[in-house]
């Protein structure tokens, strides 16, 4: 099993993800520069966080139009799992692989803090190690994390059970106070309709070892690896 961690100019959480996969989980993972277009030898991909292309135009907009995204699309069509974290989530929405858009935070400031998330869907390749309703702690670090989609798109996401994570308080209640950035219905992470592409604003790679304050994020990567093993 090999997992690709895709790097664009301005990506800066790539090595954190590599550390978690390789050193914490002992999984074969590799950094892949966006000009290396062929991803055929990989079984899954992570699009990590950062500021690809300096957030020029819109966060994730330029990276979403690079040729390597055609290879990511190919992986997705083959049923391989792809996870986009923070800027990676923005890249996935900008490329049309996920619904919605990430607009500027309702209070337009860069937020870097711990959040509580509720796992609303465990029937995905990325959350199988959780129990439905689990409240987990994973930090956010973004200024453009305000998930937006029009009301009919939000209804569809809810109806199809595509909302995977919501921002909540420590008791698991999703309300305005536990919503850090103004996201519609406290949405922190969604999955595509074929259930193999997930995007989330919080950074699971920053919460994958107890020494960092939480290892709740590790289960996301472990679930993904479990899923890849079932495909092999």
């Amino acid at each position: 099993m090999r997992i690709a961690i895709i790097q664009f100019g301005g990506t800066n959480c790539d090595r954190d993800v590599l550390h978690v996969l390789k050193n914490v989980m002992n999984v074969d993972a590799e950094l892949v520069w966006f000009k290396d277009k062929n991803l055929d030898c990989f079984d899954g991909a992570v699009i990590p966080g950062g500021f690809s292309y300096g957030d020029y135009l819109r966060a994730g907009a330029i990276a979403a139009r690079t040729p390597i995204m055609d290879s990511v699309r190919k992986m997705v069509s083959e049923g391989k799992p792809v996870i986009g974290i923070c800027n990676g989530f923005q890249v996935l929405t900008e490329s049309g692989l996920l619904d919605g858009a990430l607009a500027t935070n309702s209070y337009p400031k860069f937020l870097c803090k711990w959040t509580h998330l509720r796992v609303d869907n465990t029937d995905t390749p990325f959350t199988s190690r959780f129990e439905k309703g689990d409240v987990i702690q994973i930090p956010i670090a973004h200024k453009e994390g305000n998930f937006y989609a029009d009301q009919s798109a939000i209804s569809d996401l809810n109806k199809n059970n595509q909302v995977v994570f919501r921002y909540v308080d420590e008791d698991g209640t999703a309300d305005d106070e536990s919503n850090p950035n103004g996201s519609k219905e406290n949405i922190a992470g969604i999955i595509n309709s074929s259930r193999n592409v997930i995007g989330l604003m919080p950074h699971p790679e920053r919460a994958s070892e107890k020494v960092l304050g939480s290892d709740d994020g590790l289960k996301i990567f472990q679930s993904m690896v479990d899923y890849i093993q079932t495909l092999q």
Partner: peptide, 9 residues
């Protein structure tokens, strides 16, 4: 449509 604007927002 393809790049400069994001039709969702």
């Amino acid at each position: 449509q393809k790049l400069i604007a994001n039709p969702i927002i």
